[in-house]
């Protein structure tokens, strides 16, 4: 049987995790092609709705990767993101999807290895969990919510 290939959406901060992904590329480090990176100016920009809609539209897992604690370019964006990820985890548990499908990670711009390892570990975790039980959007990616239109 063909191995399940999860779709992972990673919201990456321009100043750290996205640069770390670049670093991973420069160092020719391998990480799974399952991870689709969305660059954001700061993880503080990522709202609960961004994470929920990624899952509703077909992602099997979502993670937010921001700066190390105390190193946010905008001072508190990463701590705000951490709280939002915790909120979404709780919400996902409540609706029966499972909070383990979202995660928050912290890394600096120079941590290419950490980026590659995080991407691999999270992909493996989601592979073990199996497909998102609410993959409404994979066949029909149109967004029904007003906030996304």
């Amino acid at each position: 049987m063909e191995e399940f290939q999860p779709v992972i959406v990673a919201f990456c901060c321009h100043y750290c995790a996205y640069t770390a992904a670049d670093m991973a590329g420069s160092k020719r480090l391998h990480y799974p092609a399952n991870v689709k990176i969305i660059r954001v100016p700061c993880t503080g920009k990522v709202s609960a709705l961004h994470m929920m809609e990624a899952l509703r539209k077909g992602a099997d897992g979502v993670y937010v990767a921001g700066c190390l604690e105390g190193d946010c370019h905008f001072r508190t964006g990463n701590t705000r993101a951490t709280k939002r990820v915790a909120y979404v985890k709780k919400l996902l548990d409540e609706i029966g999807i499972g909070g383990e499908r979202v995660e928050m990670y912290a890394m600096s711009a120079g941590m290419g290895e950490v980026f590659a390892r995080t991407a691999s570990e999270f992909t493996e975790k989601i592979r073990r969990l199996g497909p998102n039980p609410a993959r409404v959007g994979r066949d029909n990616p149109g967004c029904a919510t007003a906030a996304c239109s």
């Binding site: 709705l49 929920m52 809609e53 509703r56 919400l91 609706i95 999807i97 409404v136 919510t145 007003a146």
Partner: peptide, 19 residues
């Protein structure tokens, strides 16, 4: 508000899709 509506909508849609 609009944001909370979108979030609840997303959550309910996912729940009932799963069910």
């Amino acid at each position: 508000g609009r944001k909370e509506v979108a979030l609840l909508s997303s959550a309910l849609q996912m729940h009932f899709m799963k069910e």
